[in-house]
Design a protein around this nucleic acid. Sequence first.
DNA 1: AGGCCCTTCTGAACCGTTACCGTCATCGGA
DNA 2: TCCGATGACGGTAACGGTTCAGAAGGGCCT
Lengths: 367, 367
Amino acid sequence: MTRSSRVRRPATLASLAAELGVSRTTVSNAYNRPDQLSTQLRDRVLETARRLGYPGPDPVARSLRTRQARAVGLLLTEELAFAFRDPAALGFLEGLAQACENAGQGLLLIPASARHADLGAVHQASVDGFVVYSVPEGDPHFEAVLRRPLPTVVADQPMNTPGVDRVGVDDRGGMRTLARHLVELGHRRVGVITMRLSNTAFDGFVDPERQGRAAFGVQRERLAGLREGFAEAGVEWSQVPVMERFEHTMAAGAAGADQLLTHHPGLTAVACTSDILALGALRLAAERGWTVPDNLSVTGFDGVPEALAAGLTTVVQPVRAKGLAAGELLLERGDRVEPKSVVLPTELSVGATSGPARAIERWFSGL
Amino acid sequence: MTRSSRVRRPATLASLAAELGVSRTTVSNAYNRPDQLSTQLRDRVLETARRLGYPGPDPVARSLRTRQARAVGLLLTEELAFAFRDPAALGFLEGLAQACENAGQGLLLIPASARHADLGAVHQASVDGFVVYSVPEGDPHFEAVLRRPLPTVVADQPMNTPGVDRVGVDDRGGMRTLARHLVELGHRRVGVITMRLSNTAFDGFVDPERQGRAAFGVQRERLAGLREGFAEAGVEWSQVPVMERFEHTMAAGAAGADQLLTHHPGLTAVACTSDILALGALRLAAERGWTVPDNLSVTGFDGVPEALAAGLTTVVQPVRAKGLAAGELLLERGDRVEPKSVVLPTELSVGATSGPARAIERWFSGL
DNA sequence: AGGCCCTTCTGAACCGTTACCGTCATCGGA
DNA sequence: TCCGATGACGGTAACGGTTCAGAAGGGCCT
């Protein structure tokens, strides 16, 4: 079979029916309801289809009529390729893909990065529902998704979208537990490196006011968890320097740590709101010749494989389960109407990058 | 806006036109060809649409008429989740996603693992073309793809599908270069661990006959490259033990290496047809207390990040570029008819896991 | 005044299917 | 012989749009 023959406009169900001298319904039934016609006729239909090169009912026309596309749309505001680079996103996707596979549904990745000002990709997506992964509040693509009359599940962010299902993790509780861990180790002078808090590029220190205005609820929650945990030990949050980085890379984490530690040399611990940033901070510590955790404690959030392999103290969130839950929430809703919210637990993983603050005090006194 | 209002059957273009007292054409134009109607009328249309909760033209109906879905279908025979676990597949996907993003196209992951005996997912995919990633020859899902009257690009496998575009890498040449590298280091007693050669589960030694019958052209090519490279040094291929593993995991690589080295204790080098298997072999060597490369040389293929980080000697293939090329080949074909084949170069990356065979001989003589 | 073009909008065909309901033949039983 | 049940198939109307040719109306030029 040559390419050109495969690419020519194929026969339609109607032309096949005409060729056979039967009705279109019968041809349709031959494909979709074998029990509705005799075996002989069905075989004759299928045989003729083969002979004419009829590829079977057109999926688009079928979707139009049956009102289902057998696919789930995934909206990420980042570049598509990002999804395959970021370890946490990857875990989520793996779980989501699993859910789709289980249900025999396709998974449509929708190009909706900032490059695409038009919302065409969202409007044009032939899907039965959307999963929205971690987009900022007020994102126009997300709003376009909401206007589509389709069931939608939000993963992580934005939080509190009325009437929309959500699956997330206990960001705040996880970070609170982490903060307590640092407190127990004696840390009182801590710094924070956070992922971007808004959609506009900004790198630098952020005051609590901007923290509260953050367009990313997950970051707000994680910061709030740290605040609460440290508050229990009497650490005033306004005294805790928070460094924001727009990019989510190890390089950004290292740069953030550099700036943070340069302005606040007395810090005994740096808590990062992601593992990637924390790995960057670790790299910076190594560059400065500091020993972790003797000279500095560093913590992350997510529990990505790279971080666990590196022995990072971090909050592990079940990213895979989150993706799976998001998919299932979307696919297994029956005629449920009231929105559902799933919050998965997080777990502190104490690694080799957090240690007693004592040692650090000693180190500084020796300067 | 509550969920129930969002999920109710929405207004249609026709009902909107009726409400406005204009023709459907005009409403359609308001969305698709703003220059075809006055600004006032367009604003009135859009305003009324907002008021009635009309979500804009239905994508499926539009696709039916325009004959395009603005999406690319991706067929993998593995579980969907596999794509997010296997590093080489991941790199490919990243490149492909990039190509789709550049063209503003969606990327539809089609569930077509062995679990899905029915080909419905392929038949139902609303896409403008397919990218087929590394599936075995004769795969029924692939054949279903070929029956769809859509442009198709094969990545890696199956090779030599008449009339179909393909993008691959120089598997054979890469492996030949690797073999020469081992030869130069003095290796003559080598063993091989290969990925699965057929779709049916099998673990064990494979003779050249089965190698030639392999359903995976890429594996055939890589083995052929080794054969040719070693033949230049007078190493008879029939004397080279080849161990096949069905699973593609480090554990499988370790088990394969174990079996291989148990039956052929005199081997000085183990060449694997993938990095994952090679990393497994390295793990086994460590478990046995062997020093690499002093006691054993180990090589891989792919050049995945984990392998390069581990200093594995391997053949690096440009997986990302391969994905990008596959996407571009599909999306940028104009009215080209004759099939096109792209073969990307591979590069030997000499790491710390291959060394002179001398040392190994000495080690054995000391037993 | 008449012809022509331009802008703006309409009517009808078409895209390829499936849902719904009706029809027709066949057959067994009364 | 007639009747109702059953199985097999067909006709018609959606499904929700896009497209293209052309109509209506106004302005401009001659």
